[in-house]
């Protein structure tokens, strides 16, 4: 069932299937059905429905860039902007291949937070000086280079403790 705000009602079976897929997206419908105690045709139907509604956006490989030999640096830019130009600045940033993620945030001032990748410090600076600072509406920029990663996960059903408890409760029944 689709709601007015474009969200789709998911029941415990849907959430358990999503959880199983997020743990391993390459497992078969039969394997998922077996582990959840449901028919593989149910798994198939539910997955197809969630794909159709855009809940499952894609199946992709998560790459460890370091192990793949990439020696890049990652930085987080906090861009203070004129509120009237903020969306345009964010949209322009999205066009740059060096930009990995873009968010807007409202604290005391309107901010854009963007994650950027660069070959080294010099190319990071060059990119910010020639492609970000000149954008109309950019007031100032603070950049923090990431030195050590402690955790990085994608959004998962398991990130939400309430939903996870709901799945576990249904699994035990």
């Amino acid at each position: 069932m689709k709601f007015k705000d474009n969200t789709v009602a998911l029941d415990a079976t849907d959430l358990r299937i999503l959880n199983a897929l997020q743990e391993n997206a390459r497992q078969t419908y039969t394997a998922i059905g077996k582990s959840l105690g449901i028919a593989h045709s149910t798994v198939y139907d539910r997955i197809k429905r969630m794909e159709r509604h855009g809940i499952i956006k894609e199946y992709t490989a998560v790459i460890d860039a370091q192990k793949a030999g990439a020696k890049n640096i990652i930085a987080i830019m906090t861009i203070f902007t004129d509120p009237k130009e903020s969306d345009k600045v964010a949209e322009k940033l999205c066009e740059a291949p060096q930009i990995l993620e873009v968010y807007t945030s409202l604290s005391e001032e309107l901010l854009i937070i963007a994650k950027v990748v660069a070959e080294n410090q010099e190319s990071l600076h060059e990119f910010i000086a020639s492609s970000v600072a000149p954008l109309p509406g950019v007031l100032r920029i603070r950049t923090s280079m990431i030195t050590k990663k402690f955790k990085e996960t994608r959004f998962s059903i398991a990130n939400n403790p309430k939903q996870l408890a709901f799945i576990k409760e249904k699994s035990n029944k």
Binding site: M77, F80, L124, I128, A129, S130, V138, R140, R142, M145
Partner: peptide, 19 residues
């Protein structure tokens, strides 16, 4: 033009807002 301006930074990636 604006894209050829000099942009003042205080360190790598930290733009002061002055150009």
């Amino acid at each position: 033009p604006r894209e050829k301006a000099f942009y003042f930074f205080t360190s790598i990636g930290n733009y002061t807002g002055e150009s």
